[in-house]
Simulated assay, not measured.
Amino acid sequence: MCQEGWGGFNEADFARLLDAAHQQLAGPIVLVWDNVNTHVGARMRRLIETRPWLTVFRLPTYAPELNPVESVWSHLKRGLGNLAPCTLADLAQVIRSRLKQMQYRPALLDAFLAHTGLTTDLRST
Rank of each mutant, 00 (worst) to 15 (best):
L25C: 04
H22T: 02
S74R: 13
A84D: 00
L76G: 10
R98N: 06
A15N: 01
M1R: 15
A92W: 13
L54A: 03
V69M: 11
A20Q: 07
M102Q: 08
F9A: 08
L80S: 05
M44L: 11
D19R: 15
A63P: 03
G27L: 08
F57Y: 14
R46K: 11
L18A: 03
R58E: 05
Q93S: 13
L108G: 01
F112P: 01
Q3E: 13
G8Q: 14
T119E: 08
L122Y: 13
H39R: 04
G81E: 03
H75C: 10
T120D: 06
D110Q: 14
L17Q: 08
C2V: 15
L66Q: 08
A26I: 01
H115P: 03
N10L: 07
G5T: 09
V40G: 02
V40P: 00
P106H: 09
L17S: 07
A21W: 05
G7H: 07
L54V: 09
G41E: 05
M102P: 06
V72P: 00
R51M: 03
R16V: 15
L99R: 00
D34V: 03
L31G: 12
T50D: 11
H22C: 01
M44P: 13
A92S: 05
A21Y: 10
A20G: 13
L47Y: 02
D90S: 04
T116L: 02
T120F: 08
L47S: 10
Y62K: 10
G117L: 07
G5D: 15
T119R: 09
G8Y: 13
R16M: 11
V40A: 01
V69S: 09
T120K: 08
T125C: 01
S124V: 06
G117K: 12
D34F: 02
N82P: 10
I48L: 08
T125H: 03
A12P: 02
P60C: 10
I95K: 00
R45V: 09
T50P: 00
A114D: 11
L118Y: 07
A15E: 13
W6M: 14
N67W: 06
